[in-house]
Design a protein around this nucleic acid. Structure first.
Lengths: 231, 231
DNA sequence: CGAAGCGTTGACGCGGATCAAAGGCAGTGG
DNA sequence: CCACTGCCTTTGATCCGCGTCAACGCTTCG
């Protein structure tokens, strides 16, 4: 049995099959780099914690399947979702010794865990891996900065429109998106309430910008119109 | 004459003395790393642009004196300040070929410009420099994530209290802070309006949490009380 | 059939934006 | 030394977008 995060306090063991390993490049969505680093595949159920705020940051992760959210709570329970990570994306990179965010499965998912020390040791002599790690850090940075712009200056409709387009880019369809997460997660990502997200979806549907196909499926009927809302 | 950013369109030349150079480690506030990299010192006046959104990202910068802001505009003029950078801090690190933010002097300041290609070449064989660069990227990331939490989930008083404590950490005093930037910049950093920032300052003063000494100087009278507002 | 979650919709209130005006304060010129 | 000018900041009045609270619908599961 292997504990995923440092202190094990509120952390479930995500391992289903400890013998299962993956050799995978560590960079980008769906891109397998030239260097193959061995990590351990772990499976998590919806809402299961991968690591907690303040835990010992001794692992770096890559999503193999499903979607992960990174997030933080304020004392009174308010929550901000920092980012959703889809297949191929790296998370858990830290400067200091402990995680500054928590991470959990947004839906049932599989992630590959790499030992941080191993990566650091390997990176010392491997330019390819260094490039992959710094790319992961810098693309996370750019996304966090874009996210700040949305949270600080965009209104509800603009944020939701952006979110839908973001989802579309992760989708394999050009019109349909499958939402991996419930309304509450979307709301906490966008700095809104569940009700406002729901109302905005309804408005968009009424204006024929989208079509709601069940609660977890959205068909974009006017992608250009959605983009125009926030660009 | 040397152009600071790629296309030179809206970019002023910040060089006052092209012969002036600096040998400085590239990491952290006031910390000079072991590796000494040679950069060019440039001086900028308040509000002068250092680089613009979309410009060719061929340089990395470090603040030598004063304060720099990185920011972005929406089409209609709304602005979000991503971050203020004080002495010793690095900015302008990018994954892609162009800057995803703009940067300008928040007050008269001096920055050191390093050629990106030179840094990348040097970093290939220098672990010390690599550490400094990745530290800069990862600490920027942590700050951007913390910023998202504030913008998404904290109210005006909490944001302003946090900003004041942040400023205190950059100050050499334990009670007094000198604001390098006008209210508008603070507001755009905190995702608020100038008026709300001003009113919140006044409330804090009325509640004896702070004392306003002129418009650019604040004395913190109850640091613990301010911290309690947002932790 | 009942219970529990999640999502939607409506009514209402509040925090912060907007609009407007007046108050410092530094720089300039007489 | 003072008056003038323009910018930044403060303060007040009003407005509105989104949060809060509440009820209801839909789906799943026992």
């Amino acid at each position: 049995m292997l504990s995923i995060a440092g202190d094990g306090s509120a952390v479930n063991d995500g391992v289903r099959d400890p013998n299962e390993t993956r050799k995978l490049g560590i960079y980008g969505r769906g891109y397998d780099g030239i260097l193959q680093v061995t990590g351990r595949a772990l499976r998590f159920e919806r809402d299961q914690e991968i690591y907690g705020y303040g835990n010992d940051a001794d692992q770096v992760f890559k999503v193999e399947a499903g979607v992960v959210r990174t997030y933080r709570f304020l004392r009174d329970g308010r929550r901000q979702v920092d980012c959703f990570r889809a297949t191929g994306e790296v998370f858990g990179l830290e400067l200091g010794g402990s995680y500054t965010l928590s991470a959990a499965a947004a839906c049932d998912c599989t992630v590959i865990a790499y030992r941080r020390r191993s990566l650091e040791k390997l990176a010392a002599n491997n330019e390819q891996l260094r490039l992959q790690l710094s790319s992961a850090a810098l693309s996370s940075l750019a996304r966090a900065q874009e996210h700040s712009l949305s949270l600080g200056r965009r209104n509800a409709a603009e944020r939701v429109a952006m979110f839908l387009i973001e989802c579309l880019e992760y989708s394999n369809s050009t019109t349909d998106i499958q939402l991996a997460m419930p309304r509450r997660d979307i709301a906490d990502y966008l700095g809104l309430t569940m009700e406002t997200v729901s109302r905005t979806f309804s408005h968009f549907a009424h204006d024929s910008l989208i079509e709601l196909v069940g609660t977890r499926r959205v068909r974009l009927r006017d992608t250009a119109g959605l983009r125009a809302l926030y660009v």
